[in-house]
Computed example of a mutant assay.
Amino acid sequence: MPVNTDESSVDHSTGTKIGNDENRNGNTDSGDLPINELFYSLQGEGVLAGTPSVFIRTSGCNLRCWFCDSYHTSWEPTHAWLSIEDIIEDVQSYPATHVVLTGGEPLIHDTSVELLDRLAECGYHTTVETNGTVYREGDIDLASISPKLASSTPTPERAPTGDGEWIESHEARRLDIETLATLIESYEFQLKFVVTDSDDLPEITDLLERIRAVTSTQIRNTDVLLMPEGATRSALDDTRETVAALAIEHGYRYTPRLHVDLWNDAPGT
């Protein structure tokens, strides 16, 4: 089913980006979930990289990472309100059995649980992309947990707004060890870290030690994925080899950003 778009929206052959704060009937703020875009592509990151997938991107986030590659779900949220049934109908229009629920931070919305339960009833395998600060009990086949390091903090030099207004709240929220441990204990998981350079590795090592100290669930080094920072090919060119070398050195997994390598920063990929 096609979705109405605004002037910033792009139909990238396999999906549609959503811009208006309306549902399909033209009503404002009515619907089950704020959806920024829903599209069909390849999973670009993690253990399922390369898997044909339907992406459901919710709008809204409790963090403000300066390098966020979905700017219009966090810094300047845009969305349409869609019902669970409309979302399911859209998902079923694509030839995929894997669905990625992402954001923003999809677990800030309690209705995400209802959507995940409905997707499970329909036979879909689901990955939830989460920053690890919110826990909800639902049908999640893979929790793709991406804890945010200190290098994510939107300082005045790095933040899109340029004035550092989000520093305090981002720092206060970006890590929750108990919630991270609960997610790991509850679901099949991968821990995915956005890495810029070797300065990030001591923090990753320390964070893993802190999580391992409060959970009985084994966290293998191969459950830890290092992903190069960069939302464009040129940016990845600056970090890819460095991060791959760090993964080899520390025994962690390296994950590409396949969608960036293939389509650069095009929407709907």
Rank of each mutant, 00 (worst) to 15 (best):
V113S: 14
V113C: 14
E114M: 14
E114T: 15
L115P: 08
L116H: 04
D117K: 15
D117A: 13
R118W: 05
L119G: 00
E121S: 12
E121P: 03
E121V: 11
Y124T: 07
H125I: 15
H125W: 15
T126K: 11
T126Q: 06
T127L: 12
V128H: 03
V128D: 01
T130A: 11
T130W: 03
T130Y: 03
N131Y: 09
G132K: 03
G132L: 01
G132Y: 05
V134H: 07
V134R: 04
E137C: 09
D139Y: 12
D139H: 15
I140C: 08
I140K: 14
L142P: 00
A143W: 08
I145H: 02
P147K: 01
K148A: 04
L149A: 10
L149I: 01
A150W: 12
A150H: 12
S151R: 12
S151C: 11
S152F: 03
T153W: 03
P154K: 05
T155E: 07
E157H: 05
R158P: 04
R158N: 10
R158G: 04
A159V: 12
A159Y: 07
A159G: 13
A159C: 10
T161Q: 12
T161S: 12
T161W: 13
E165F: 11
E168D: 07
E168L: 05
S169D: 06
S169P: 02
H170L: 00
R173T: 12
R174Q: 09
L175A: 07
D176L: 02
E178R: 10
E178I: 09
L180K: 00
A181T: 04
A181F: 01
A181H: 01
T182L: 06
L183D: 00
I184M: 01
S186E: 10
F189Y: 03
Q190I: 08
Q190F: 01
L191F: 09
L191D: 01
L191M: 08
K192E: 01
V194A: 00
V195N: 02
T196M: 05
D197R: 03
S198G: 06
S198P: 07
D200S: 02
L201S: 01
P202I: 06
E203N: 12
I204F: 00
D206A: 15
D206G: 14
L207A: 02
L207D: 05
L207F: 02
L208N: 07
E209P: 11
R210P: 08
I211R: 00
I211V: 15
I211W: 00
A213H: 14
A213N: 14
V214T: 13
T215P: 08
T217E: 12
T217R: 13
T217Y: 07
T217W: 06
T222S: 07
T222E: 08
V224R: 01
L225I: 07
L226H: 03
M227A: 06
M227N: 08
P228M: 05
G230S: 04
A231V: 06
T232K: 10
R233N: 11
D237R: 09
D237N: 10
D238I: 06
E241T: 14
T242V: 09
T242D: 13
A244I: 10
A244R: 14
A244M: 14
L246T: 14
L246D: 10
L246C: 13
L246E: 14
I248K: 14
I248V: 15
I248T: 14
E249Q: 14
H250G: 06
G251F: 11
Y252H: 08
Y254M: 06
Y254C: 02
T255M: 02
P256A: 05
H259W: 02
